[in-house]
Simulated assay, not measured.
Amino acid sequence: MVIGYARVSTRDQNLDLQISALEKAGCEKIYQEKISGATKNRPELDSMIAQFRQGDVLVVWKLDRLGRSLKHIIELVIDLNSKGVTIKGLTDGVDTSTPNGRLFLNIMASLAEYERELIKERTKAGLSEARARGRLGGRPKGFKEDTIRKLLIMRSVYKDPNKTPEELYVGLGLTRATFYRYAKILDKHTDQEIRDMAIKKK
Results as ranks from 00 to 15, higher is better:
Ala6Pro: 05
Lys163Asp: 00
Ile30His: 05
Leu152Cys: 12
Thr123Trp: 11
Asn162Gly: 14
Ala177Asp: 11
Arg176Leu: 05
Arg53Leu: 13
Trp61Asp: 07
Leu17Ile: 12
Thr178Arg: 04
Ile153Glu: 05
Pro43His: 13
Val85Glu: 13
Arg7Met: 14
Ser82His: 08
Ala132Gly: 15
Lys120Trp: 02
Glu113Ser: 09
Gly171Asn: 11
Ile153Met: 05
Ala112Trp: 02
Arg155Pro: 04
Glu113Val: 01
Leu90Met: 07
Ile19Gly: 01
Ser128Glu: 04
Leu58Asp: 06
Gly4Asp: 14
Tyr158Val: 11
Lys40Ala: 10
Lys163Pro: 03
Thr147Leu: 10
Ala198Asp: 09
Val170Met: 08
Asp16Ser: 03
Lys150Asn: 09
Leu103His: 11
Met197Thr: 07
Arg102Ser: 06
Val57Asp: 04
Glu113Arg: 14
Val2Pro: 00
Ala50Arg: 02
Gly55Ile: 08
Glu129Cys: 06
Leu80Gly: 13
Arg42Asn: 03
Lys24His: 04
Leu70Cys: 07
Thr10Gln: 04
Gly142Gln: 06
His72Trp: 14
Gly137Met: 15
Ala130Arg: 03
Ile78Val: 13
Lys150Tyr: 03
Gly137Pro: 13
Gly171Trp: 02
Asn41Leu: 15
Glu167Ile: 10
Ala6Phe: 07
Asp79Gly: 05
Lys83Gly: 07
Lys34Phe: 09
Phe179Arg: 03
Met108Trp: 04
Leu174Cys: 02
Gln192Tyr: 14
Val157Trp: 14
Thr147Val: 05
Lys29Phe: 10
Thr39Ile: 14
Met197Phe: 06
Arg176Val: 01
Met154Trp: 01
Ser82Ile: 07
Tyr31Thr: 04
Ile78Lys: 08
Ser20Thr: 12
Asp196His: 12
Val60Trp: 01
Ile3Lys: 05
Tyr169Ile: 04
Leu168Ile: 11
Arg116Ala: 12
Ser69Cys: 14
Glu166Trp: 01
Met1Ala: 02
Ile74Asp: 10
Lys88Val: 10
Phe179Lys: 08
Pro43Leu: 09
Leu136Thr: 15
Ala21Lys: 02
Leu174Lys: 03
Asp12Ser: 13
Phe52Tyr: 15
Ala38Asn: 09
Arg7Phe: 09
Leu105Thr: 08
Val8Asn: 08
Arg42Trp: 11
Arg11Val: 15
Ala21Phe: 03
Ser110Tyr: 02
Gly137Ala: 11
